[in-house]
Write a protein that binds this DNA or RNA. Sequence first.
DNA 1: CGTGAGACAAAAACGTGCCTAACGTCTCAG
DNA 2: CTGAGACGTTAGGCACGTTTTTGTCTCACG
Lengths: 199, 199
Amino acid sequence: MGQGAFRESSRDEARVLDATRACIDDLGLTRVTIDDIVTRSGLSRATIYRLFPGGREVLFEAMRVRELEVFFEKLRGEAEGASDLGDLLARCIVLASRELAQDDQLAMLLAAERGEVLGQLTVDGVPRVVLMATQVLTPLAEQYISHEAAQQIVEVLSRLVISYFLAPSMQVDFTDYASVRQFLDAFNFLTHPSVHIND
Amino acid sequence: MGQGAFRESSRDEARVLDATRACIDDLGLTRVTIDDIVTRSGLSRATIYRLFPGGREVLFEAMRVRELEVFFEKLRGEAEGASDLGDLLARCIVLASRELAQDDQLAMLLAAERGEVLGQLTVDGVPRVVLMATQVLTPLAEQYISHEAAQQIVEVLSRLVISYFLAPSMQVDFTDYASVRQFLDAFNFLTHPSVHIND
DNA sequence: CGTGAGACAAAAACGTGCCTAACGTCTCAG
DNA sequence: CTGAGACGTTAGGCACGTTTTTGTCTCACG
């Protein structure tokens, strides 16, 4: 019944995560201490540990999750304004690429190494991002194509976004809408991506 | 006039490179010392430094280059036996994926960080591999499609091979020929990859 | 001439102890 | 239920001496 999108998260929780995010932007991931976050958030040390039992690891992980959530929320919003499949895909690719380029935190998620404690619970790095992308975007693409096709396309394009971000090419500019459209068209991504083999 | 593929490389040079490769397999990239290579190769310290002026960095870089050369030579061989475009691409994808999976050295090339001294001269990591792939494979694909299309397809598929290697998916198995064929067909990679937009 | 053997200084890697800073838990007052 | 802070424990940095390793140079040998 709250106003939040999917989680019932306390006001304080958000304050802590905001502070964490801000601290990381300033000092860098490794240099941030809990006390920094205490100072920034205005909350007490005890509260933080109550909100995020498990301490530093859990707190940072929670921040990453939230960061991904807002990112994909943006993506979902962008996708809903799309007119056709090509527009949908191109918009998402461009937005995602631009966000990655200007948001270090987001980019870090791609290189995130396996956490010791949480390693078994949460997927990390590239697989996580690809997984979330397919989960969020596949339903939207299903308006135009089959479930299987949507899943395949979203996964492949997610991987390409990551790849072109990490190692840009002279062929395509994924931050440019027209370039992306041309790219998609050249590959017949839009025409009839079906699982059928014969023609 | 020699029997080598592209470089006139001395017999000793190969011995050093072989020894280097062997040492790395045994001890790991970081643990290998020049003296280890001296012992293994049977050549003297002085000779090694004469063959590879610049020392460790240059030597290791040379080994990487050679490793990539034999890899792409294998790929070229595999490609030449192909019957059509789909077969060509699938064969290359499968072979490349399998080689990556079983050859640690090759995989390391993808994660190779920018060398300080040679950073400006040689491209490294993912971009290098993608670049070499396009250079080697594009000519072969041109038998079936246009130059531009070949270039695009090879680049994209190279990136996907790397991506699926680093973060495997449940959707596709790039080490399985049938799975790859199905994948390619599903995406219309083969039908008519053209740069034209209108239809 | 080219190669191997080895000496050599400079630089990097290593081990060690110490110390400060940070962590996570706890208690207690408001 | 929160903030303030004490507290034991742990982890990260730093200074240090030592050992390896590196890269160059010399010289004897064929």
